[in-house]
Write a protein that binds this DNA or RNA. Structure first.
Length: 949
RNA sequence: GCUCUGGUGGUGGAAUGGUAGACACGAGGGACUUAAAAUCCCUUGUCCGCAAGGACGUGUGGGUUCAAGUCCCACCCGGAGUACCA
């Protein structure tokens, strides 16, 4: 009987489904292991071959762990809320829930065909009310907690209020808690403490999508989805105070087993920088003899008596080189300090800067712009008067939005000073005596290596010592202190869209209140128009039943809103990352209706042992999830600080496009790639990879492909049309999308699984290329044949040796996540065993178990053919016997390193030559090499002889 | 600019510091077949040689080592992330 995958694959898929082979229990004496894939967004296009790559790798690992006796949690679900379904709804009127349901069904069908070992009874969908009630629940907890910097964890907001009421802590604001009105108190808690808070913040507004986007959803001033321009806009939005966790998010990276590159991406995104906060006093205006803005402006929470403002610098050592100050255009002090003469110019600049699009601002980074306010500050260490400027190279969102400019030692300040002809003063030099005139410089000296010069009391010190000394000095003077700044921003959590989780929030007197937890889930209301309303409100503004009856604790019609008992509900919805931030915990206990997940379940599973997914989530999902997890940890729900212990990034699969070459003179003539002179005569045209095999074009299929090619004629080489190829993004428009279903139909799921692994290391990005799939298919046929021709006899030494080499290699490979070499190992094994003639059932049974993680269908079938009644999944992973790998005993102490190479320690009193001769003689006498001499015997120092066999 | 990656045959890629190019594709040759498909065998880094054999070879230049694709330093070229972050 031939290898007939069409028959065996559906057979075993049905068997697994009926027997619940992959059902996983929370109640087990076995050790636990949690293998997780990043769940997919079910798009309309279905799966392409890139999606299953990571799933196959994690499935191999999950199956391997099961065979090793672990209780393995290996679930799958859908990140079902998202923009494409909503945009499709706007275009067609089709409700996103329907589109999503359809896409999920298609995904499931495709996934099932590949033979994954998911426990589908644990499936979660982010758009399912039984799931998102816990997303909403977490939001309520975030709203009701603050970050206590002393305890270094989230605490209930009531704890803080209690302390404020008792006077144990003072407010940061000017008013004391007792003097505040209720509204002021709520605003105070909201602005400074709640981990989920509503605030007027500059946001990324995308007019095209009609919504706000998070920082990681914007690249180069364009939206990641769709590439539409994004503007800066001040809006009242929900945010998550993720910055409170910045330090812990950074520290946690040392605890996890991730790649250095991904940890680095996160470190950069969090962007910790150490420096100093310094308050610069404002100078007396010489005309009016008054400090500008003195009455109106006192630096908030300033430690200094006189009017002053705070700056952040990483180079406090350069404070003697400050020649001007710069404020960002949004700085609230500008209006108060600008002198009458400068006012018109400053206002014009601020207006211009604010209206500039993000895109313009970023593309014109090198263009220097700015304006003088007319006001001056005092350098607290030198008492010099220094001018205050406004420029948009200072950003509102970082530090305090104000800087001290040291043009000699900062390239941006340098460019600004040159442009506006401001003084430049050298205060750092590579050597203490190497001082030159900055007017002759072509660039600033930014290096931190060197010595302070012209710098008062720190002159002559190394830069690092000068930093310390200056910080100590300003600290002693009470005008500043050492501080840390993070680049990480709070995560904007509102989206002006329909297809997302509703906020469990209603508004009483414009003040947000959470709906009671027992009323969750707050279900997404039905609407039919998915566009923003005429008044510019989010789509939920169309809902007619979207008001909160506080008394009856239920959702009622909008018409009942009276502002006394019935109130409007929040109209925006949560972003995509809300649902994906905690889904891995929900898999542990997916049907629990009392809690997010039970303590019993979370205590058993702890956290994800292995997480597989793309690195493109480095600054999004993987940061938000870690934050979410740390918050739940603070609440005592998650047992571990870090959600994902080990993380493997599968490389992106790129497309491999094929080209035909159309003659420039004759539109119907196509010239084969290697015909001499072709390049000048032709233009390349994308051709569907499905009508090309091993870069050879199927001429008939090409003529049939599109009407315009029906009359095509060809100039061939060796009777064939050879296509060109190039690596590009996998996309429909380049005709290079490979659908896994087609390959499953042609070669079977096992071949697809093996081939995707064989393609190269899982972590590496690589183009999809079907050219080698035949080789893997041939291997499986060969493997099948080994079983067909098996012998019922005891296993003999040569086959056992091959078997045990294979066991060792495969086990090592899986542990190292090196699945491409595993496939090679199987091929070598099959070739070697094939050469022996007929193989014993005993050895074949072990082989079936070994290959089960990779090619589960064929393994299952062969395992049963050997007479087993149970699934191969219940078998035990073989353990290799080292004795099998060494042919015979040696008279020297020997270590075998797994390759055909021996290391042995030389007994005392033997010379090198004697030892080498003895080893060679032994090899011959004991037939280590079937009677051949070792290829090479090398003597190396420290008494080790290295024998290459 | 900064950070992280990677650079090995015609191609995808192997190689705990220890025979560089495993395994596979492609290519060439052969067997079986009326033929095709399928299957099997041989050759396949480059150069010299009829051959035995020899020389050269992992982006470039240095270094460490008995031994370097692998470790260190500098440079060149790809890919990714990030970017007026003070």
């Amino acid at each position: 009987m031939d290898y007939n995958f069409n028959e065996i694959e559906p057979k075993w898929q049905n068997y697994w489904r009926e027997q619940h082979t992959y059902r996983c229990s929370n109640d087990s004496d076995k050790p636990h292991f949690y293998v997780l894939d990043m769940f997919p967004y079910p798009s309309g296009a279905g799966l392409h071959v890139g999606h299953p790559l990571g799933y196959i790798a994690s499935d191999i690992f999950a199956r391997y762990k099961r065979l090793q006796g672990f209780n393995v949690l290996h679930p799958m679900g859908y990140d079902a809320y998202g923009l494409p379904a909503e945009q499709y709804a706007i275009q067609t009127g089709q409700h996103p829930a329907i589109t999503t349901e359809k896409n999920i069904a298609r995904y499931r069908e495709q996934l099932d065909k590949i033979g994954f070992s998911f426990d589908w009874e644990r499936e979660v969908r982010t758009c399912d009310p039984d799931y998102y009630r816990w997303t909403q629940w977490t939001f309520i907890q975030l709203f009701n907690h603050y970050y206590d910097t002393d305890l270094d964890k989230a605490m209930p907001i009531s704890h803080l209020v209690e302390q404020l009421e008792k006077g144990e802590v003072e407010t940061l604001a000017e008013k004391s808690w007792a003097d505040m009105s209720e509204a002021e108190r709520q605003e105070y808690l909201m602005k400074n403490f709640r981990l989920a808070y509503l605030a007027d913040i500059p946001v990324n507004w995308c007019p095209e999508l009609g919504t706000v986007l998070a920082n990681d959803e914007v690249v180069n001033g364009l939206s990641v989805r769709g590439g539409h321009p994004v503007e800066r806009k001040l809006m009242r939005q929900w945010s998550l105070r993720i910055t409170a966790y910045a330090q812990r998010l950074l520290d946690g990276l040392n605890e996890v087993d991730w790649t250095d590159s991904l940890k680095e991406i996160q470190r950069n995104w969090i962007g910790r920088s150490e420096g100093a906060a310094v308050w610069f006093p404002l100078a007396v205006d010489q005309k009016s003899n008054m400090v500008p803005g003195a009455q109106a402006y006192m630096g908030q929470s300033s430690p200094v008596e006189e009017p002053s403002f705070e700056i952040f610098t990483t180079r406090p050592d350069t404070i003697f080189g400050v020649t001007f100050m710069v404020l960002c255009p949004e700085h609230e002090m500008i209006d108060q300090i600008t002198t009458p003469e400068q006012r018109a110019e400053v206002e014009a600049y601020v207006t211009w800067a604010k209206n500039r699009s993000e895109r313009e601002r970023q593309s014109e980074v090198k263009k220097v712009s700015g304006v003088f306010t007319g006001a001056f500050a005092i350098n607290p260490l030198t008492n010099e008067r220094i001018p205050i400027w406004v420029s948009d190279y200072v950003l509102a969102g970082y530090g305090t939005g104000a800087i001290m400019a040291v043009p000699a030692h900062d390239s941006r300040d340098f460019a600004f000073a040159r442009h506006f002809n401001l003084p430049i003063r050298q205060v750092v030099a590579a050597n203490p005596d190497e001082v030159s005139d900055p007017a002759t410089w072509s660039e600033s000296l930014d290096s931190k290596e060197g010595y302070a010069v012209n710098s008062g009391f720190v002159t002559g010190m190394k830069v690092k010592d000068a930093m310390k000394a200056v910080i100590e000095k300003i600290d002693a003077m009470g005008i500043g202190h050492k501080t840390v700044n993070f680049r990480l921003r709070d995560a904007i959590f509102s989206r002006q869209r329909y297809w997302g989780e509703p906020f469990p929030i209603y508004y009483k007197n414009n003040c947000p209140y959470t709906i009671p937890e027992k009323c969750l889930p707050l279900c997404l209301p039905e609407i039919t128009d998915f566009k923003p309303t005429a008044t510019g409100e989010p789509p939920l503004g169309h809902a007619t039943v979207w008001a909160w009856d506080e008394e009856h604790e239920c959702v009622v019609e909008n018409s009942k809103i009276d502002g006394v008992k019935v109130f409007p509900l929040e109209l925006s919805t949560m972003p995509g990352f809300a649902g994906s931030s905690g889904y891995y915990m929900r898999y542990m206990d997916p049907t629990n209706n009392e809690e997010y997940f039970s303590q019993k379940a979370s205590q058993y599973w702890q956290n994800v042992d292995l997480y597989v997914g793309g690195a493109e989530h480095g600054t999004g999902h993987l940061i938000y999830s870690r934050f979410w997890n740390k918050f739940l940890y603070d609440l005592g729900l998650c047992p571990k600080q870090e959600p994902f212990q080990k993380l493997v990034n599968q490389g992106m699969i790129q497309g491999r496009s094929n080209f035909v070459y159309r003659s420039k003179e004759n539109n119907n003539l196509f010239i084969s790639k290697n015909v001499p002179g072709r390049e000048e005569k032709t233009v390349p045209i994308h051709v569907d990879i499905n009508i090309v095999t091993n870069d050879i074009l199927d001429l008939d299929k090409f003529r049939a492909w599109r009407p315009e090619f029906a009359e095509a004629t060809f100039e061939l080489e060796d009777g064939k049309y050879v296509c060109g190829w190039e690596v590009e993004k996998m996309s429909k428009s380049m005709f290079n999308v490979q659908n896994p279903d087609d390959l499953v139909a042609r070669y079977g799921a096992d071949t697809l699984r093996l081939y995707e692994m064989f393609l190269g290391p899982v972590e590496q990005a690589k183009p999809w290329d079907t050219n080698g799939i035949e080789g893997v298919f041939r291997f499986l046929k060969k493997f099948w044949k080994l079983f067909e021709t098996r012998a019922d006899k005891p296993a003999e030494k040569p086959e056992l040796k091959i078997l045990h080499q294979t066991i060792k290699k495969i086990t090592d490979d899986i542990e190292r996540f090196s699945f491409n070499t595993s496939v090679s190992t199987f091929m070598i094994c099959a070739n070697d065993l094939g050469a022996l003639g007929s193989v014993s059932s005993e050895v074949l049974e072990q082989l079936a178990i070994l290959i089960a993680p990779f090619a589960p269908h064929i393994a299952e079938e062969l395992y049963h053919q050997l007479g087993h009644e149970t699934s191969v999944c219940d078998a035990k992973w073989p353990v290799y016997d080292p004795a099998m790998l060494v042919q015979d005993s040696f008279k020297y102490p020997v270590s075998f390193n797994g390759k055909m190479r021996l290391m042995l320690e030389l007994p005392n009193g033997i010379s090198q030559d004697e030892a080498i001769a003895a080893v060679k003689a032994d090899a011959l006498a004991q037939k280590w090499l079937d009677g051949k001499e070792p290829k090479r015997v090398v003597f190396v120092p420290n008494k080790i002889i290295n024998i290459v066999l």
